[in-house]
Design a binder for these strands. Sequence first.
DNA 1: TGTACATCAGTGAACGCGCGTTCACTGATGTAC
DNA 2: TGTACATCAGTGAACGCGCGTTCACTGATGTAC
Lengths: 197, 197
Amino acid sequence: MGRSSQSKAKENRAQIVQTASRMFREAGVENVSVAQIMAANGMTVGGFYKHFESKDALIEEAFSLAFEQSREAWDEVYSRADEASQDRAAILVRQYLRNSSAKNRCPLLAFAPGVAVTESERPGAHEYAEGAKSLLDKFMKEKVGGLCDPAHPTDADNEALVIFAAMVGARLLAQSVGQQSWIQAMEAAVNMAVIKH
Amino acid sequence: MGRSSQSKAKENRAQIVQTASRMFREAGVENVSVAQIMAANGMTVGGFYKHFESKDALIEEAFSLAFEQSREAWDEVYSRADEASQDRAAILVRQYLRNSSAKNRCPLLAFAPGVAVTESERPGAHEYAEGAKSLLDKFMKEKVGGLCDPAHPTDADNEALVIFAAMVGARLLAQSVGQQSWIQAMEAAVNMAVIKH
DNA sequence: TGTACATCAGTGAACGCGCGTTCACTGATGTAC
DNA sequence: TGTACATCAGTGAACGCGCGTTCACTGATGTAC
């Protein structure tokens, strides 16, 4: 087991980020060790630092990748939705609320900071904020046809913001409370709201 | 420094739970050690296990206390609000969104599980779920005059659920994204929604 | 009330564990001639 | 093309650290007489 070729090494690096992104979403950043990530790729822990400066650096890349893939998934939902049919944003919301398996967990929730700490202290805080903004932008673009001016939101902007916040909040509460009837009521409620507006 | 009196010991125990509840909300359960909690009460770590079986047991009590104090705070907001004036739930929502200091952080967010794990694995999961349900119950009671049947929600139930979810989701996104203009827009949006309905 | 003893709240050092990180080493890959 | 050497991706043991927990000990409190 000596050196890998440059192309293989590059491939390994990408694999590590992808695996970490998945494992972080499934179990949380704190509950996944560097050694576990390497083992999941059939490697040992020592080699990790040939690719990354630290675990925090990996967290940043893994966060960015997770949000990127979420954006792609949202685009796919949009593209599958019949252009002429009902509100496409409503379809996204429905998908979002349904799709609560561990593997596909939304990074907005999986990486959410339970507590707010100074940005420099929390690894990946910058990437999380950027990713959250990008998903919100994508939602607003579809819902109200473009980014609103945060300083002067229109009524339509505000309605869309509420639905976005409710969508995220509903899934947070649903997965926490873990009572099926409440989850269904939450989903029905958000679905109703998104259709009405 | 020998034994404390029984009443003093009981007082110390209550202080530990109160201090832990505050520190957990400020910095997160994972980022506060047993030794730190004891030091904050002017004690050393060894005595902790005369009061609690484990850190997990303290977490459970601290969670319950935090939710209990949140319920009391909500009651106080309700009682201060003029009975005859506008929607009292709207006042609560406004308070909730404004009150984002670290010390008063809502346990719904501070203790939110970023990832869903089996209930037995995550300390305090039961207390969190119960606390979340109790706050939702209190909100629904004020907003639609009583607990709705989760299996057959009315339209008013659904609207209240959306506002509750949006309130929580908005604060989660606001503290994460940390961009003041977005926070204000989020608050304006939720305020508008709660007043309209 | 006073005395002798048992109790036990609190002490602080030590233990065990998992984690992030380091390091000397290996051997296949890349490169210069 | 072949050969000699340098490079460096990956290995796996070891280190340092913080944490939850344990334990022998202390001495004021509680209790029995």
